[in-house]
Design a protein around this nucleic acid. Sequence first.
DNA 1: ACGATGATGAAC
DNA 2: TTCATCATCGTA
Length: 173
Amino acid sequence: MRKILNKKFFNRSTVVVAKDLLGKFLVRNIGDKEIAEMIIETEAYDGYKDEASHASKGRTKRTEVMFGDPGNFYIYLCYGMYWMLNIVTREHGYPAAVLIRGIHGANGPGKLTKFLNINNKLNNKHAIKRNGLWFEDRGIKIPDRNIKKTPRIGVVYAGPIWSAKKWRFIINQ
DNA sequence: ACGATGATGAAC
DNA sequence: TTCATCATCGTA
């Protein structure tokens, strides 16, 4: 079974999408090369009230993408060196996204974008084959008992309420 | 424990 | 136009 995840999949609760992405495949196509790896770690960033989310600054040139269509990529540079790959969730006009933090063979959001050759050229592009980067359901279902929830990484600046939210999801090895 | 490295947003 | 900050990672 190979089903490409569509707009409908991403137009749902951000936390649910983040959890559901575990076990799905991130597929990268460049030329005649195709890499497909299972997603093992994600984080949810939901709404303008979430102080950990860039969208808490409101609509800016950068955050505009998060207000866009579900299934679009939100990609930005972090610490001057690493591209972060996010996928926009919820309906158009509501700012939310899921950060892809780990795939099989590349743990860490900066490492996986380097591994898959992802940069801001894909920012605000839709996750479809035509753009060379998309998501597939290959029939793997991760049972709840194998999913670990923890607070998000590197967001202490967001204050006690938002930094404590257990919106990071990892497959228990 | 820390430095690399540059875009971003807010203050001035 | 400056300035602090940062959804990280490799080296130590």
